[in-house]
Each structure stands twice: as C-alpha cells, then as structure tokens.
Amino acid sequence: MRIMGLDFGSVTVGVAVSDPLELTAQGIETIRYAEHKKNLLFERLKTLIEHYEVQSLVVGLPMDLIGTETARAEASRGFAKSMRKKFHLPVEMWDERLTTAAAERILIDADLSRKKRKKVIDMEAAVLILQSYLDKKGMEKKRDERT
C-alpha cells in the first residue's frame, strides 16, 4: 500500500508518495494549475494515484505557530473533500506547520538556485508532510506492538 502526500496551494500542488512499506516519502512532482481548470489537476492526480497504486491520501493543513488553522486551511479542507469524492479514498488532514520553511532550508543547503528552488519547493513540502505522517504512524505501530 502507498500513501500520497499533497501540499495544496493556490496555484501549485506538491506531490509525494510513500514506499510500499510506508517508511519513507519521495517527491514526485509539483503540479501547476489554474483555478478555472482544476479538472486538469484532478486528471493528473488520478493518473498518479493509479500509477503508484495509492490507497490513502494526506493533505497538508495550514496552521500558524500556535496551532490555529490559517485562512488557507478552508481551501485545503475543500480540496481534501473533493479528493474524497473524486477518488473514493480515505483522506487525512495533517499539520503542515513550517514545512515550506523547512523545505526552503533543505533546498538552500543543497545549493539549488532560487529559480530551481521555486520549481520544487512545494514537492519538497509534500515530502516533509508525508514523512512526518509516516513517522508518527510508525511510532504508533511500534507502541501498539509493545502493548
């Protein structure tokens, strides 16, 4: 089973997918879309979901530093609802606090130019969202095995 992580933005969606054992997240791509052509976004996501045999989705939930949902959270929740309806897959919202900032640091440390960073930052944020979800899920599984 694979899980797909999504960093939903107003013009791009970063996409990451887990390995089959659900241990690690890998970046797939950043999808650019126009609000009035969201059908193209969903077509591309459908292709990726089928190709990677995705069985559940994790959508980043924008939160501020004190844990309150930001103005973008409503759009992310709407996107998650659309994903549930279109693909009939479980969708979980996941705190994406500071993922874009962390992604930026990782890409700067990798010595990517500003232009290259702009192209992949949302995908890297999706990797961080999904990896934190997988790490939490893995810790819960280990805890349950001990009890």
Rank of each mutant, 00 (worst) to 15 (best):
T99F: 06
M83R: 03
P62N: 06
K37E: 15
K38W: 10
K86T: 11
Q131L: 03
K115F: 10
D64V: 12
M93H: 00
A75K: 11
R32P: 12
E104P: 06
A102I: 10
D64Y: 03
D95Q: 06
Y52N: 10
K81A: 14
K116V: 06
R84E: 13
A102F: 11
S76H: 04
Y33K: 06
E92Q: 15
S113T: 05
Y52F: 15
L40N: 11
F87D: 05
S132W: 00
L48A: 02
P62W: 08
D135Q: 02
E50W: 09
V58K: 09
K86A: 14
L40A: 10
E69M: 08
V120Q: 04
M123K: 13
K116R: 13
W94S: 12
L65Y: 03
D135H: 04
D111A: 03
E53W: 01
I31A: 06
T99P: 02
L57R: 07
L41P: 01
A73P: 07
D122N: 09
S56F: 07
E124K: 14
R97S: 13
E35Q: 15
R117N: 08
I31L: 13
L89E: 07
K115H: 13
H88Y: 07
I121T: 08
K116I: 11
T30C: 15
R77V: 08
A125T: 09
W94R: 06
G60K: 05
I106Y: 06
V54L: 07
R105I: 10
A101L: 13
L112F: 07
A110E: 05
E124R: 09
Q55T: 15
S56P: 03
Y133I: 01
R117V: 07
G78M: 09
L107R: 05
I129E: 10
H36C: 08
D122Y: 01
K86H: 09
L107A: 00
L41W: 00
R44A: 13
S132G: 09
S82P: 01
F42T: 07
K116A: 14
L45I: 10
D95E: 04
R105K: 14
L98V: 05
T68M: 12
K118G: 08
I108Y: 04
V127I: 13
S132A: 07
V54C: 05
W94F: 15
E43V: 13
L65G: 12
L61S: 10
F42C: 08
K38V: 09
L134W: 06
E43N: 15
R72W: 02
K46F: 12
F87A: 10
V91K: 03
D135T: 11
R77K: 14
A125N: 00
S56W: 05
E92N: 13
T100H: 03
L98G: 08
E74I: 12
R77Q: 04
E35I: 00
A75Q: 10
E50F: 04
L57Y: 03
G138I: 00
L134P: 01
Q131S: 07
E104Q: 12
R105C: 02
L61R: 09
G67Q: 05
